[in-house]
Amino acid sequence: MSPQFSDYALVVAAVLFALGLFGVLARRNVVYVLISVEVMLNAAGLAFISAGSKLGQPDGQVMFIFILTLAAAEASVGLALVIQFYRAYKTLDTDSARELKD
């Protein structure tokens, strides 16, 4: 029973990752980009958990915890950046921030 679970869970993780990637690439609003990044991190966490479950080891969950930590740090810094971005450009459209080119 469980082995199929972990295999299917990997498929779900792949789907979620692809959705997150789509979101990152397709959305121009910074907040959505951040949401999509969270989705991708989640998908990665799911992949780790299912792998750990398949191999019967706690390492997958340990990795998930690390990913969680990463996501928390990323969210806090990312949101701070979003706020500064909004203050600077009065918009959240990433394409408006093109000063790096000049």
């Binding site: 469980s2 792949a14 479950s53 019967g56 969950q61």
Partner: peptide, 21 residues
């Protein structure tokens, strides 16, 4: 990317016991 990942998984995911950790 999804197609590639699914192909990778269906090609032969390693077998192994499952347990509650």
């Amino acid at each position: 990317l999804l197609g590639a990942l699914i192909a990778l998984l269906s090609n032969g995911a390693p077998a192994g016991g499952d347990s509650i950790e």
